Simulated scan of single mutants.
Amino acid sequence: MTWEEVVAHALALPGAELTTYYGGPAVKANGHPLVTPGREDGSFCLHIDQDTKAILIETDPDTFWQTAHYEGWPSVLVRYDSPDPERVLAMIEASRDWAMRRKPARPRKA
């Protein structure tokens, strides 16, 4: 899997749009990020609720992981070379569902 494939899948979901997040590329829905490039090579960042994040890290630490930078935040790193790409795609969809259930994000002031 590549960043381009991750973005293409995310953008195919209803309500998703290509935009930016802290100056970098992102796919958002309802104003909330779904996926952003990871700070670590070979991974992207999936924005997901804390409970799901904990389950993902516990059940598949070879795919879903974090560094100290991501501790305490609703996001998890995802390795592009996951042995279970279908689960990764399903988690992108879960991220979109979570974003759509949340209050719309307020626009940032310029």
Rank of each mutant, 00 (worst) to 15 (best):
T36C: 12
A105L: 10
N30H: 03
E58D: 13
A16C: 15
N30T: 09
R79Y: 01
A90Q: 12
D84C: 14
L34S: 00
P104W: 09
Q50T: 13
T2N: 08
R39F: 00
L34M: 01
A99V: 11
P83L: 13
G42D: 02
D62Q: 13
W98S: 05
D60T: 13
W73P: 06
A54V: 14
A90D: 10
E17S: 10
E5V: 05
I48G: 02
T67D: 04
V35T: 03
R87E: 05
P85Y: 09
P25R: 15
R39V: 01
S75E: 06
S95G: 03
L77K: 00
W73M: 03
D62A: 14
E93A: 14
I92P: 10
A90E: 08
Y80I: 11
G15A: 03
W65E: 01
H9S: 02
D84I: 14
A29H: 06
E71P: 05
D49Q: 08
K28S: 04
R106N: 00
K28G: 01
L89T: 12
H69M: 04
N30V: 04
H32D: 01
F64G: 06
L89W: 15
R108E: 04
Y80S: 05
H9P: 00
P107S: 07
T63I: 07
K28A: 04
R96F: 00
F64Y: 15
D81I: 11
E86I: 12
E4L: 08
V78A: 00
M100P: 03
E86Y: 13
E5P: 04
Q66I: 11
P104I: 06
P74Y: 01
E71W: 10
T52Y: 03
A8G: 06
Q50W: 14
D60L: 12
V78K: 03
R79I: 04
V35E: 00
I55A: 05
A54I: 14
T20R: 15
Y70H: 05
A105Y: 10
G72M: 06
S75W: 09
E58A: 12
K109E: 00
Y80W: 07
W73C: 01
P33E: 00
D41W: 05
V7I: 11
D97A: 10
A110C: 05
L46T: 01
G38N: 05
E4M: 09
D41V: 12
D81R: 13
E5N: 07
I48H: 07
G38Q: 09
E93T: 15
H32C: 02
A90F: 08
D51W: 13
I48M: 04
S95D: 01
E17I: 14
Y22C: 08
L11W: 01
L13P: 09
R101L: 09
L34K: 04
A54K: 15
G72K: 11
E58W: 15
C45E: 06
E71Y: 12
D51L: 11
L77T: 02
A110L: 13
D51H: 14
A26I: 15
M100F: 02
M100D: 03
K53Y: 02
Q66G: 04
M1K: 12
R96M: 00
E5G: 02
D51V: 15
Y80K: 13
T19I: 13
E86G: 06
P107L: 14
F64V: 14
P25Q: 11
P25G: 05
R102V: 07
L13I: 10
Y80L: 03
A90R: 13
P85F: 07
P14A: 07
W98K: 04
E93L: 11
T59H: 10
W3C: 01
F64I: 09
K103H: 00
D41N: 05
C45H: 09
V78D: 00
